[in-house]
Design a protein around this nucleic acid. Structure first.
Lengths: 132, 132
DNA sequence: AACCGATATCGTAATATCCGATATCGTGAA
DNA sequence: TTCACGATATCGGATATTACGATATCGGTT
């Protein structure tokens, strides 16, 4: 069953990548942008916790996003150790495209399923995340 | 929602890795063994389709598993292009440990959830896999 | 002032992933 | 039969991912 979970994740990652080839972003970059799409700024650690990777891993991903002009790195007022990741206009556009693509895929895949099934899915996913 | 799916996958991968450190296997190797756990032999392409990666990706993974003595590569009777992947005794043991670990994690995480919720989860995951 | 923990980055290494090319093999058409 | 084409796996090379240890900076505590 956890194997099916992995396969589903894999399948959706492929769909997302195919849908977003024009953005020329890797899966990690897409994931980072998707987690920033709400417009709130985050520190590297916070973002790492959200996407499930260590801060060391994010550094190079953020390097590319910064070089591409999608994010900026700023200092957090009150703690100069922290780096605040923030979307630029270009990053906001990309994040909006990503969010739309995710919503589209959801609609396509789950449109025919019952509300109860989707609720069950959510409760299982939440339980798995809690367990981690 | 697809973000939650990814996070759940990530979380379970961490749990599995933590549970199986003694096996000294990477996530890809664990995934390959888990998909072979039923004892049936498979070609590289078949295994690749099951785990969601290209045959090229599997080659190095299978190299390591073969070097470790967990699998053997044989020819398929009737088609000498195909390579038949098969578990050795040691591979069967490892696969059994993996299967047990997956079942344990499922029990821990989903024990308190209703049968309907789990059924809903399955239907959503199946829909996502179909979409891919 | 001195220490310890937090934070992010850098250096380095192992792994993952895949594209194009290659070698081999099976199959259907000329 | 022969030959062209598709299937199959591997190899070479490229990029991405991931993270451990070390480093530099900084905040808070004593």
């Amino acid at each position: 069953m956890l194997l099916a979970l992995q396969r589903a994740t894999h399948a959706t990652l492929q769909l997302i990548a195919a849908d977003l080839v024009d953005l020329d972003l890797t899966a990690s970059e897409i994931n980072a942008l998707a987690n920033l799409a709400d417009g709130e700024s985050r520190t590297v650690s916070q973002l790492g916790a959200a996407v499930g990777v260590k801060p060391t891993t994010l550094t190079s991903v953020l390097d590319r996003l910064e070089r591409r002009g999608h994010i900026t790195r700023g200092v957090r007022a009150g703690d100069r150790r922290s780096v605040l990741i923030e979307l630029t206009d270009s990053g906001r556009e990309a994040a909006a495209v990503i969010t739309r693509s995710l919503a589209d895929i959801e609609r396509r895949a789950l449109g025919a399923l019952s509300v109860e099934a989707i609720a069950g899915f959510h409760s299982v996913v939440s339980a798995l995340i809690r367990e981690g």
